[in-house]
Amino acid sequence: MKNILEVTNLTGGYTYDRPVLHDVSFSVRAREVIGLIGLNGAGKSTTIKHILGLMEPVKGKTVIHGTTFKEAPETYRSHLSYIPETPILYEEMTLWEHLQMMAMAYNLDETTFETRVHPLLKEFNMDNKVTWFPSHFSKGMRQKVMILCAFLVEPDLYIIDEPFVGLDPLGIHSLLELIETRKNNGAGILMSTHILPTAQQYCDRFIILHEGKIVMQGTLEELQAQMGHPHATLDDIYIYASRGKKV
């Protein structure tokens, strides 16, 4: 299966001499959900920022469909959409205008926009709130706006940062279903989360980050084998990995 995203020997951080990430390498293939897992401060958000092209790597590179961000910024960006951990909205725009803005920015035509937007709004129970301004949205609704925007674009790669916190159970269910559908349609998804049981159930492979390094990666079975416990849950594996692989 072909790689959508390829991260090779990525070293980087906020200052040149003290990188947060050390030699991180992994890939996201088509039809695959990857769980990016680690303690607070392990480097998940930094990894994501490098993939988004918001930070320059000190060493190594991130490649989407064969090109780096530097080579072709617009093409690179057009392949991905992003759901941030903290929703970022334009306070001056209604929900509908946010969706329109996203569609315009990603060069969708109006008919495509219209056919995609209504089912999404209905799915997340937001179809009666299209004229609302963000100041009237709860935390969960703001999160939903981000989800709607990201899935409206239908890119090849989804970068999702901790999507479950603040979302109501129905919303979580809808999001997981959407992830499943897009995956089956050929997209790749990189999802960072702390909700391990959900990750265990929905992710195909896992990357466990600890202090800026990848300490374990692979499918659940592979991780279980590395740990030597064939029935270990992702919770067990995670604790094992972040305590320096000691049982």
């Binding site: 334009y90 306070e91 001056e92 205008e97 329109q100 803005m101 569609a103 315009m104 060069n107 035509d109």
Partner: peptide, 21 residues
């Protein structure tokens, strides 16, 4: 109100910000 214009999202954004902010 801004016309749906692919690749030109900022026109509407600035107009709305001007009027509403």
């Amino acid at each position: 109100h801004a016309k749906f214009a692919p690749r030109r999202p900022f026109h509407g954004l600035y107009r709305k910000t001007f009027i509403r902010s």
